[in-house]
Amino acid sequence: MNKKLSGYYQHAYASEVQHFNQCFYCGCEATERDHCPPLHMLQSIIDLGEDAEFISIPACYECFALLHNERLMSVDVRFDKAKKKIAQKYAKPLRVYNMWHESELSDMSDEFAHSIKAGMKLGKEAAERIAFQGFSYVTEQATVTIREKRAEFDVEGTIFYDFKDALNYCIEVVKVDKSAFYTIVVEDCNGDFNRALSQYRHRHNKITTASDGNTLIKSFAKQHKQNSDFVTRTVKHFKNKDPSLSTEAALQQLYQNYIKK
């Protein structure tokens, strides 16, 4: 049955010799053919009359397995999905690779340095697979030219072509906390550095404001010989009634209403 259904697909092959036997999705050695859409879903797709490209393309075993149950109808969409799945699967080594540098290993214990080095190696391989841009290919009916889609990372107008370089710029020049910022840019903002910086600053400013507010409350309580819990609760009460009030204004209101009298 599968052999009969496989006749629906055009077989795609790399146009240039350097890409022979290479996975279209990540650049590793191709050992399988990924069917777009998956062969085991073909009968229902035919029955439903769904549009699809019906192409089989060289893939490594891992990308083939990652895409096996993905009901995606075009090679481009499957390509993007493969990248996301690789990034998810290797999230931890990617973090190690992006966050650590070889120069830092000498300050670690041998065991920890060995662990970090292994993570960096695996993370670098994953990063290279994610950065791979595919290749032009031919089918029985057409030649498909893949134009290089070089990744760009805009950091407030400065363009980088490598995620790690952009991250290091944010750490060294913008002075973000690398651990907190990495989580935001990867998990919350999907590599959008400008959105991540905006979100990071918003969170950081809120923390700073809260910290400054606590300092003001403690100073006020000490100056006027008040219980700090009482001051905190009263300030919170005033700010709940009027969210536009600053901590300083709420303290002034507390003074006028309860202490000055």
Rank of each mutant, 00 (worst) to 15 (best):
S246Y: 03
E152Y: 09
L66M: 14
N227I: 08
Q43L: 14
A142L: 10
K225F: 13
H68Q: 11
E104A: 14
A127F: 07
K218M: 14
E187D: 15
R129S: 05
A210Q: 15
C170K: 01
A59H: 08
D242W: 04
C23Y: 02
C28F: 12
K261A: 10
R150I: 13
R150C: 07
K121G: 09
V186M: 13
T208G: 09
D188S: 13
D47L: 06
C60I: 03
T232A: 01
A65R: 10
I130E: 05
V144Q: 08
E104R: 12
T158S: 10
Q141M: 10
S244V: 05
E70S: 11
E32T: 06
K239P: 04
E248V: 04
H35K: 00
L105T: 11
E125M: 13
D51F: 13
N98K: 03
Q252M: 12
H101K: 15
K117I: 07
G7L: 12
R195M: 14
V186P: 00
G49K: 12
N190P: 02
Y97D: 03
A14K: 03
N240A: 11
C36F: 03
A87F: 06
L251A: 00
A91I: 08
K164I: 02
I259C: 02
H11Y: 07
Y161K: 06
N69L: 04
F163K: 01
P243D: 08
L167F: 14
W100K: 13
T208Q: 15
V155S: 01
G213V: 06
Y8R: 03
H19V: 05
E128A: 12
S74P: 03
K261T: 13
R233Y: 12
D154R: 06
D76S: 13
F79D: 01
F132Q: 02
S74L: 08
T209W: 06
H237N: 15
A59K: 04
D229P: 02
K81N: 09
S56L: 07
N240H: 11
S56C: 15
V17I: 15
K164D: 02
N2M: 07
I46K: 15
L245Q: 02
L122S: 11
K4L: 14
V77S: 14
Y25R: 00
V235N: 01
E128H: 10
E111S: 12
L197F: 11
C170V: 06
Q18T: 05
A14P: 05
K261N: 15
R233W: 09
A250N: 00
G27N: 07
L197G: 01
M108R: 10
S106M: 09
H11R: 14
D192F: 07
C189A: 07
M1P: 05
A249V: 00
P38Y: 09
N227Y: 13
K222V: 10
N69R: 07
D162H: 00
Q43I: 09
I259R: 08
K124F: 05
S179T: 15
L94Q: 00
H35A: 01
C189W: 04
S44W: 08
A59W: 00
K92E: 13
K4D: 07
